[in-house]
Design a protein around this nucleic acid. Structure first.
Lengths: 139, 139
DNA sequence: GTTCTTGCAAAAGCTTTGCAGGAAG
DNA sequence: CTTCCTGCAAAGCTTTTGCAAGAAC
């Protein structure tokens, strides 16, 4: 089990939350992959080991884990959001092929500072993906 | 009728598209407001003058106008996308109150250049809104 | 008249919710 | 044993689609 997953489960225990099969399995899955999984994708994967776990449970579990700061979701333009263990950084999604690029947060620092100072908005750069075109689909 | 709306309708004619009530009314509405309207909102507005125009027609009309380069849509994180006459620029949406900030494209120029050069993605900064918190809801 | 567009109804895709049974602590 | 979580089914919201009637040119 990945370090991040172990840590997340420890946080659950430390805060007195219940460690259920759904929570443990989803955290382990997210901790062990670099894929950008939708709730549906997470459900499919989780159901290979635990077929009884329902998609609605996956949604509710992700929602709880997110409220407790352990998970984050990212909105793609069209289609389903994807989820990962908390590690706020921006994403760029190719509009053609769906490829997801993880961008280090520091690349956005100047923009964040400028939008704060000039426009009075505190950007949350990780909540929505940016859209774009990767090298192979650059028009 | 706004200049932008007149121009858009001229483009329709010039390209031999049909100028229908739905198209004309939607273009005039978008040309005459700075609000950030959803398809639902556009339908409600349009239906005050033309109650027979159906939401599905609004969606199809917006889709066509967008394919012809006259309209653009922007994805908010949760909830419906909003639409405006073509004028590509980024938006920031307050996660608390939904307020929408229009940002001049040049503010994103350094980021766009850097993401292109370092990561090989050509950003489309207008397609998804960025999320954030405005001054009154900054936590 | 021919072709493109629309209204309506229905469905699709993603996500949320109510409820009663079941598991965690 | 008490509280929280889950399975299931149903509904919610946004958007898309098939089809036949209707409008634009």
């Amino acid at each position: 089990m990945s370090h991040a997953a172990t840590r997340a489960i420890d946080v659950l225990r430390a805060e007195g939350r219940r460690v259920t099969t759904a929570r443990r399995t989803i955290i382990e899955l997210l901790g062990g992959t670099h894929e950008h999984l939708t709730a549906e994708g997470i459900a499919e994967d989780v159901q290979r080991a635990h077929p009884e776990i329902h998609v609605s449970t996956v949604y509710r579990t992700l929602e709880s884990l997110e409220a407790w700061g352990l998970v984050e979701h990212v909105h793609r333009g069209h289609g389903a959001a994807f989820f990962h263990l908390a590690a706020s950084h921006p994403h760029v999604v190719c509009e053609e092929c769906g490829r997801v690029l993880d961008v280090p947060a520091h690349e956005f620092a100047p923009l964040v500072a400028r939008v704060r100072d000039v426009y009075g908005f505190e950007l949350d750069i990780a909540h929505n993906a940016l859209m774009g075109r990767c090298r192979h689909h650059d028009s």
